[in-house]
Write a protein that binds this DNA or RNA. Structure first.
Lengths: 331, 331
DNA sequence: TTGTATGCGTTATCAT
DNA sequence: ATGATAACGCATACAA
């Protein structure tokens, strides 16, 4: 910047003013501006964001932590966030926790040392207290995908998965007349695990079905995990007539394992998933599932975040993204 | 840091020395170190990376640009990069170009203003000249996934896709006795487009098959694009007996469109893809494809990058990741 | 073994 | 409308 100033025959702060003219009201003569711009072009000067960040305490950067970048659900969120952020002149730093607690914590540590202007994350192990600490240390606007978080300065977006699973289970029972049900969830250490299981059980009880007769299983969100559940089901004396699965990826694994051994879907067993990832339309039969609209989730998160960046004292908001039952051929 | 120094009763540089003791040889008395560490804990002090970066010109950050984060191939690369980087104490900033030229350029712009310690990218539109400019402006180690790049300071990882497509086509012709072939590629503006088409045509010519008899089509890497190709094929008087497709995602779309109209795979038409993304094992029949090992690609890229970060004057290296034919049920 | 002084590249406050 | 000067938080050359 000093070189630019020298070449333009002005002082270094004047160059800075030309650069920041949009954001300030300080007047600059046309002649000076021309000279400075010419010098910038001649030297190929580019401002140094580290220095600017140090001085302004702003970064023009937002950070995003997703829970599993290899699960198609999250890249779609990340992508819509990045699109809007770009529009606002912000860069996006995407990270991946792989559902691992330690990596989630490491992300928070990083955010404390490497401050950013906003944080979007999908907390699985991080508690409300952890996020409170994160906010206390960073004072940075935060938006999360996670119904379980309640914090006065943190915006929350969520799909109402307890209700969603309740409704799809209810639909299986009353519309599709299933009474031998099974459920494949994930551990309660993951917040969606408990909520989705509860939704399932509520529907079962509401239908006066004996909870003892339903088959409750648990796996780990992954295709492999789903396959193992499939193997397990094959060893049972009799299959449930319908299976509610807590995410699509596991549902796919279950379908593959069952079909490998000649089980017909939906004739022998109906299956519903959760998320509506693209693979649900690739598998045959196509998978009935509860849609979580990832583009809308991403858009909502980033819009909330930018509103809070502009106005940090906003009261926290909770936005429910409606789930939608997508009926396909697996039921 | 000054507060820590005051509390510990030492000077600010002494605190800095305690913090950086691992990387320097300056001796510090045990007593001083204890006092400083106690003060750091008491105040919950965390170093500010922006200030550190400004001073050291290092960031402990590497940037990754992938071509399409919603294509399962890339998240696997990103994930293995992030794992190794974490091990080295580096953070990773993942970006997504969506194959859009403007976004690739925007990424380069960002890298110039927001310097990082290393860059990994998958250039689709960026030319050797663009990367040369990037290097000239940043002087930052660069590693790319892209056979078309030749630059004395840039490390290159690539799958030999021309040879791969040649071999799989050759295999279809000689082992599987196909002679009515079709090829679905992508535009030559994408570097893999030209290479893969060339591999296909070389095999056709080598088998003395009249090029006029083969069906050459073009789409855009996506599932939707593949479906449209499928529609197009259905309107043909006769299908090719075997189709070589330039990536798995398009191959899936083609299969779905054809199967919707009762075409049997592989009986009516055999199909091979490229990449070996997870979806290839979800679709039925499972898709025969050429594997590009994304984890190995990511690992190789990031290892090359760290070697160059440690030793910037290394001559550039080109590492070929072997393709492997995965024979499944679509052929 | 530690302290003093300086500068990394900006923006912001004050003059003029 | 512009220039001097200071400060952001840290690491390092030099002195002691």
């Amino acid at each position: 910047m000093r070189d630019v100033a020298t070449l333009a025959g002005v002082s270094q702060p004047t160059v800075s003013r030309v650069l920041n003219q949009k954001y300030t009201t300080i007047p600059i003569s046309d002649e000076t501006r021309m000279k400075v711009i010419a010098a910038i072009d001649a030297l190929g000067y580019r401002p140094n964001m580290h220095a600017r960040s140090l001085r302004t305490q702003q970064t023009q950067l937002i950070a995003v932590l997703v829970a599993d970048i290899t699960n198609s659900f999250y890249p779609q969120i990340a992508r819509s966030i990045q699109q809007i952020a770009r529009h606002h002149g912000y860069d996006v730093m995407i990270s991946n926790s792989d559902h691992v607690h330690e990596y989630e914590q490491h992300f928070c540590e990083t955010m404390i040392r490497r401050t950013v202007d906003g944080i979007i994350l999908v907390p699985f192990h991080l508690t409300e207290f952890d996020l409170h600490e994160l906010y206390r240390e960073t004072k940075t606007p935060i938006a999360v995908l996670g119904q379980q978080i309640n914090h006065p300065q943190i915006d929350v977006v969520y799909g109402d998965d307890e209700m969603g699973v309740y409704e799809v289970t209810d639909w299986l029972i009353h519309e599709k007349k299933h009474c031998r049900l099974g459920y494949v969830g994930v551990s309660d250490v993951f917040p969606p695990g408990e909520r989705r299981r509860r939704g399932f059980l509520r529907a079962v009880e509401h239908a006066n079905i004996d909870v003892q007769t339903v088959c409750m299983l648990e796996s780990d969100f992954t295709l492999e995990g789903g396959k193992q559940i499939g193997q397990y089901l094959l060893r049972l004396d009799s299959l449930p007539s319908a299976l509610v699965v807590a995410n699509d990826t596991m549902a796919l694994g279950i379908m593959l394992a069952l079909q490998d051994r000649g089980i017909r879907i939906p004739e022998d067993i109906a299956i519903v998933g959760y998320d509506n990832i693209p693979e649900t339309t690739i598998i045959r039969p196509t998978l009935t599932t509860l849609e979580q609209n990832p583009a809308e989730i991403g858009t909502t998160l980033v819009n909330l975040l930018f509103e809070r960046i502009e106005n940090p004292d906003l009261p926290s908001r909770r936005i429910k993204i409606p789930n939608k039952l997508i009926i396909r051929n697996s039921t």
